[in-house]
């Protein structure tokens, strides 16, 4: 039998495999890898690396979604943290200050949304929408609308460096995902988050402090967004407050849902959400490699997303099971009749 962990992500893995086959059909060299200058090179590595921001965002988003919330501000928080890091570097502070300030900015952003939601009772989609709109203004205020370019190889390493032949951003999202899974599953935090998501009032009655849990998940989401912002900023060696993370919150939510997490809250899987992010990036990279005219990009993406959603939908899975059961019954009539006799 399969271990439960693998079984949970099986639909996402199958989807990813089908998608890779599909992309390989239009771009035969998709799976080709080679090793040169001490690093692995190939389209698959590009997917892993370019998928880093959405994968990082999806980690935090999964926890937020598990509480029944949603975080529209993550793209903007990426822009803020990138701007903070770049401004710190340009002002002459070192790598540690830049990283520390950026992560602190992400935590503050999460704290702000979390307070609006947990203490003022504002609905998550609206509370984070407010930060989504005004946060980009704050980021632009820091950069004054320019692209803040800097030159600090140690910082750029986080975006475009390699470690053991693999791009650093890949290590970052792997580490962040592993760490979060360990923390969430080895402590009671995961259960508490699920409890809040399933029924906030009931969880309060059992003594769970839902407000603290809500604050925690939005701050984790802010922290993940800060990491994503750092990766993006380090990658282009500049903070582009106008465009960094623009509309990425939608991709992150999509990744979470493709990962089989319910937007209504409750049980969640971070690995599945991260694979969801890779699925989205495979679509994006596949479109770029295929060489179709640009005006088809969105339609292709929409069609693939709809197909994935339909195939993964829980109700359809039920339908398929029923169809499969009927087929088995047709093929093996004997046990089926027994069942039929028993059922009424």
């Amino acid at each position: 039998m399969m271990p439960a962990g693998v079984k949970r992500v099986l639909p996402q893995l199958i989807t990813l495999a089908v998608l890779v086959a599909l992309v390989s059909a239009v771009f035969p060299d998709f799976l080709q890898l080679h090793y040169s200058d001490g690093r692995l090179i190939g389209p698959v590595i590009d997917v892993l690396k370019r998928g880093a921001p959405v994968a990082l965002l999806a980690i935090g988003m999964t926890l937020v979604v598990a509480t029944g919330g949603i975080d529209l501000s993550v793209g903007t928080v990426m822009a803020i943290t990138g701007a903070v890091a770049a401004a710190a570097i340009v002002a002459g502070h070192g790598l540690l200050w830049a990283l520390g300030l950026a992560l602190a900015a992400g935590l503050c952003a999460g704290l702000f949304s979390g307070c609006l939601i947990a203490f003022l009772g504002i609905q998550p989609i609206v509370a984070t929408l407010i930060l989504m709109i005004s946060g980009r203004g704050i980021a632009q205020l820091i950069t004054e609308g320019r692209i803040l370019t800097f030159n600090l190889p140690a910082f750029s390493f986080l975006g475009s460096g390699h470690l053991l032949g693999i791009p650093v951003p890949v290590w970052l999202w792997l580490a962040a995902a592993t760490l979060t899974v360990v923390v969430v599953r080895r402590t009671a935090l995961g259960l508490l988050i699920e409890a809040v998501g399933i029924n906030r009032r009931a969880s309060a009655l059992t003594g769970i402090n839902a407000r603290v849990i809500l604050l925690a998940v939005y701050m984790i989401s802010g922290l993940c967004a800060a990491l994503a912002g750092i990766v993006t900023t380090a990658d282009i060696r500049g903070a582009d407050a106008n465009n960094a993370g623009l509309w990425l919150e939608l991709d992150a939510i999509l990744a979470t849902v493709i990962g089989g997490n319910s937007l209504l809250g409750g049980r969640f899987s971070i690995p599945a959400a991260v694979i969801g992010a890779l699925i989205i990036q495979t679509i994006n990279t596949g479109i770029l490699l295929a060489g179709f005219p640009t005006e088809y990009n969105l339609v292709i993406k929409a069609a693939l997303v709809v197909a994935i959603l339909v195939l993964q939908s829980p109700l359809l899975a039920g339908d398929l099971k029923r169809v499969a059961a009927r087929l088995t019954r047709l093929r093996h009539p004997a046990p089926a009749t027994k069942k039929e006799r028993a059922s009424p």
Binding site: I147, D235, L289, P293
Partner: peptide, 26 residues
Amino acid sequence: VRSQTGDFTRSGGKEVMESFIRAENG
């Protein structure tokens, strides 16, 4: 030989150029 949108942004230009490099024999 290849033409794609990078949305006028630095990161868009970088990502698309990477895919061009992959698609055109390194």
